[in-house]
């Protein structure tokens, strides 16, 4: 079998073929992502629950967010997903470590921009007394359940915070991958035969992107805004 020629160290002892190993690891990754869907889904469930109970307060809350910044940040995150696709593509087609690294650097770059923008958005919330449990003052008073706007911002900080945390974890993993690529570590030689790690990580990063794809309309758009500039 030519599988012997690929180097014994890469086929773990408990698998029979490379095909089996690859399929198993991707199945595992997808199951992990299904788990992540349920994890974020719980937070979205809290959102759905409170939005049904206090629609006015949630509209008032989301009108405090800058739709245009959210829109531009969505584009930035989509770009990071594309650079991730590029890295996976480079690995799958044996384009060499430089192109893989390029894709990863691009992903870190766009991810970084996203987080920096998020940092300034958070800062604005502190300035405008919109941080729940810290300095919150309801932005609109003459609506039913005005005090529940604080719950909207609790969800805003909770959900975007968890999303940002997932991004930071992802960027940490990418830093390790880049370290491996630059120092030529044996586990970081990714080519046509062996790219499970890059592809698996790519799935994680795209998942984080999907979370934002839902967070953007849920937090920024629902509730018909006036234009913000």
């Amino acid at each position: 079998m030519s599988s012997q020629a690929l180097g014994e160290s890469k086929l773990h002892h408990h698998f029979e073929t490379y095909e089996q190993q690859k399929e198993t690891s991707f199945l595992g990754m997808w199951l992990f992502l299904a788990q992540e869907v349920m994890f974020f889904g719980g937070a979205f469930a809290a959102y759905v629950n409170y939005r049904t109970l206090y629609p006015e307060a949630f509209v008032a809350g989301s009108q405090q967010l800058d739709t245009t910044i959210g829109f531009l940040n969505t584009l930035v995150l989509l770009c990071s997903s594309f650079t991730m696709v590029y890295a996976v593509w480079a690995a799958q087609n044996s384009k060499g470590p430089k192109k893989i690294a390029l894709g990863l650097y691009g992903t870190i770059f766009f991810g970084g921009i996203f987080l920096i923008v998020k940092y300034f958005e958070y800062g604005a919330k502190f300035a405008h007394h919109l941080v729940p449990g810290y300095n919150f003052i309801p932005p609109v008073q003459d609506i039913p359940h005005a005090e529940s706007t604080e719950i909207f911002f609790a969800l805003y900080f909770g959900m975007t915070g968890l999303h940002a945390l997932h991004m930071i974890v992802g960027m940490g993993i990418m830093a390790v991958m880049l370290f491996g690529l630059h120092t030529g570590k044996s586990w970081a030689i990714w080519d046509r035969k062996n790219h499970n790690f890059v592809e698996g990580f790519g799935l994680y990063w795209h998942f984080v992107d999907i979370v934002w794809i839902f967070l953007f309309p849920f937090l920024y758009l629902l509730g018909a805004h006036p234009p913000s500039f």
Binding site: Y50, P132, G133, H145, E150, I151, A154
Partner: peptide, 14 residues
């Protein structure tokens, strides 16, 4: 930790 108020009845928490 942060007194966010997800479940605080005073804020309409459920």
């Amino acid at each position: 930790l942060f007194k966010f108020g997800f479940f605080d009845p005073a804020l309409g928490g459920d």
